[in-house]
């Protein structure tokens, strides 16, 4: 049962990693990179490390995404109306 959960989460993490590198839209790529950390925090719970799971859920999927989004906002503001 636990092995199944780990395998499903692992496949999802690998898919999300490829999406983060190859999606056209940068915003979606950043969200995919946050999803990797979220699934990693579930794996930490399975590995009996609740401290690490809390930190990873708060930092990896919360604050890192926010910092990326702020930086994207700054870069886009420089660029003006041209889109990327």
């Amino acid at each position: 049962m636990i092995l199944t959960i780990i395998i499903v989460l692992g496949i999802l993490m690998l898919v999300a990693a490829f999406l983060a590198l190859y999606l056209k839209d940068l915003l979606s790529a950043i969200i995919a990179a946050g999803a990797i950390s979220l699934m990693a925090s579930v794996i930490y719970i399975i590995l009996a490390a609740p401290d690490v799971a809390m930190t990873e859920a708060a930092i990896g999927s919360g604050l890192t995404t926010i910092v990326f989004l702020y930086a994207l906002h700054l870069v886009k503001k420089e660029q003006g109306e041209k889109n990327d």
Binding site: P50, D51, A53, M54, T55, A58, I59, G62, L63, I66
Partner: peptide, 17 residues
């Protein structure tokens, strides 16, 4: 309990966000 300085600091930072 699980948790500590790093996690608490991050939660406070998210409140400021």
């Amino acid at each position: 309990t699980p948790g500590g300085g790093f996690q608490g600091g991050v939660v406070i930072a998210s409140a400021i966000v």
